[in-house]
Design a protein around this nucleic acid. Sequence first.
RNA 1: GCGGGUGUAGCUCAAUGGCAGAGCUCCAGCCUUCCAAGCUGGUGGUGAGGGUUCGAUUCCCUUCACCCGCUCCA
Length: 535
Amino acid sequence: MNMDSIVSLCKRRGFLFQSSEIYGGLQGFWDYGPLGVELKRNVKEAWWSDMVNGHDDMSTLSGAPSPYSMEGLDCTIIMHPQVWKCSGHYDLFHDHMVDCRETKKRYRYDQINGRWVEAKGRTIFVTAPAGEDEQEHLTKQALKFFKLRNKHIDDLKWEGPVVCLTTLENFDEVLGPDAKSLGSLTEPREFNLMFKTFVGALSGEEGAAFLRPETAQGIFVNFKNVLDSTRHRLPLGIAQIGKSFRNEITPRNFTFRSREFEQMEIEFFCHPDQSQDWYRYWRDRRLKWYHDLGISGDNLIMREHHQNELAHYSVGTADIEYAFPFMSEGEYGELEGVSHRGDFDLRSHMEGKLDEKSTDLALQLGADGKPKWKGSGKDLSYRDDLTNEKYVPHVIEPSAGADRAALAFLCEAYTEDEQPDEKGKMQTRTVMKLHPRLAPIKAAIFPLVKKDGMPEIAKEVYLDLKKHFKVFYDEKGAVGRRYRRQDEAGTPYCITVDGQTLEDQTVTIRDRDSLEQTRIKIDECESVIRNRIRQ
RNA sequence: GCGGGUGUAGCUCAAUGGCAGAGCUCCAGCCUUCCAAGCUGGUGGUGAGGGUUCGAUUCCCUUCACCCGCUCCA
């Protein structure tokens, strides 16, 4: 299977278009067409229904330590700038970069270290990426620049310690980490992975704000509000679906890495002692969700992060990954991350930005010894009114990409098989085998031929079914062609009015995948479709 | 960000420094009683901007987008 055929079908049938296509498109932005919007709505509605509104909060679900509650939330895209400073996104996504004019490489300004060195009567500042073998790299660069051999290593006279590039004011005597000539590094330039905007009519730094790079923070800052307004006890999950924005450096692979995308996130708040069990529960539950909606086990994997990949406060993080056709053999792309986040986020919004690298999650301090970013100062801890215990809840975060899920379902559904035409000759058929719950159109209604009163009956059936499902009416051309068109759109059922309908009020219903037709009464159409979708 | 490739109709692909063509699709009509049938007719295109030229889709420059590899990123 190749990705080009899928992209081509998406365009042809109206699943996905390039954004602003008539102006040449815009990198990293995609529009959903008439079929795509239905598919994506169905993905989101399946998630919301399965995770939130349809959640059984009375029972202990399989694999869960106890019953739990679920609530929803819909927060703004632009939030108080301090949210992103305390969450760590501001520091992480807001870098100063220097480019090398000679090698065209780009480096993070604060991650280049260097040292003054003198040889042959000349003093220069050699640099290297910050890291363990930086001195080795510096020596190599210096030898190369001064055209010295290894045995003349003692001719290099180092002056002062290794310091960060940020301590220099002028780069004229600086040798870039991979450069051969001096002064090739540009001035540091602001590089923003968060989209910046301005609140208020006057644009000045005081009104600077950011489009959210994730929906999660809206849930953390509203945790207390949800708790107070709903009177829930923990464990409690809060769900949100919404747009997020990241100024990705290299958007690629169709909609997989977009700059504007939609997330489906749950922050699940629980007692620290139970957090490991809840982590395992959510990991397994979320994997099963994709399976149940038709993604086969072969193409879906759970990848547990190694201990050394984890932030130290995290007990575990697992990615649910799909073998997208545009990835090479054995490679997978992330659909969802399920992580154990401890009390990191709530505490950050209470106390201020925490230092992830410190073992006790200490407050991160600025150069002046004061907290780098001040928290809200609000108490976000939870008091259990049964045990009277007070604690900052731990959080399990299943964070899914709606666009990535939609793309995975599209890729998984794309099938080419062989079916006989009217002369019995085998023909290639392209069919989108989407799960009926996800299919944009649930059923198409056709008159077998455009005469003998068949269109009139078919239109009645159509209008009646339209009250319950997204359905489609078509009377143009041969019926075989109409079936094939629906196959490409992923429509699971086709209802056909034929000669016998005129006599006994029955129609045929055709199954997309098996091509089998069964005869049912017109009155039964709605319930038959409803039952089949539910299965 | 770097290197390479591509950009012609809705799709797949031709051609040319001098009228841009085919198949499929799509639309209309006829015909048609179950899986892309047939007949007739029709719609529709050189990614954008600039330059060279009498004339550019073709040559040159810039730009945008997509694909591959690297880089980056979660």
